[in-house]
Design a protein around this nucleic acid. Sequence first.
DNA 1: CCATTTCATAACCATCTGATTATGAGAAGC
DNA 2: GCTTCTCATAATCAGATGGTTATGAAATGG
Lengths: 113, 113
Amino acid sequence: MTTHILKGDRSASCDELFKALSDGTRRTLLEYLVREGEQSVHALTAISGVSQPMVSRHLGKLKRASLVTARRAGRETYYTARAKGLAPVVQWMAVYGALWSQRFTALEELDGY
Amino acid sequence: MTTHILKGDRSASCDELFKALSDGTRRTLLEYLVREGEQSVHALTAISGVSQPMVSRHLGKLKRASLVTARRAGRETYYTARAKGLAPVVQWMAVYGALWSQRFTALEELDGY
DNA sequence: CCATTTCATAACCATCTGATTATGAGAAGC
DNA sequence: GCTTCTCATAATCAGATGGTTATGAAATGG
């Protein structure tokens, strides 16, 4: 009963993760956090192209998807990208992407990046 | 000007891909196609839990995201999972997941799968 | 203490999206 | 030829979602 939990366990977090990643603004925020490290809402608003309340809401979704963590310091809130948050999606990719073609051959074609 | 095209090129397909993958029913269809190979709309409807028109529409989205291909044979249409379709997402993962933590360490924790 | 900064929440709106039923167009079978 | 099967599209609808402005709470700084 421990193995073979393809559905039911992962799918919930996968759903939240894929949904979180399916928005361009959200990905922009996440990408910026990954590249630049911990950032305040203020800084994120500056680069997001949307209003501050919207940034807060996007960050909230990323947080609920476990893709970021928040740290309050005075009046600022600093958000940080959370590495392990992507794990369920990576697993999904590994199962279906790999099962289905060569094991992440595409990774070798990255070069430029 | 040739390199550093993180945005603009990939983001379009990434958006469509993540959106396509962000729906549970769509993932179920795709997963089934990956595991069982080419399937008719009829067969996919049987396992989807939703109506046939909805299955057609979901397949349409998967097709536009380049995740499946369609082959008409008589009155049936057979859909097939398309391996390379995931590439942009895999690349995104590689760039941000890797840049951000150890290079896909999560993959090593797959065991059960 | 008052003004300002920083953030989150509320109220609201337009649009997208998933789902349904109804319909229509082609193939197959009798 | 008529019926049946397979699929896609149209018409609709409820609810989620991205966006905005307005507001409020809490911390900082004169």
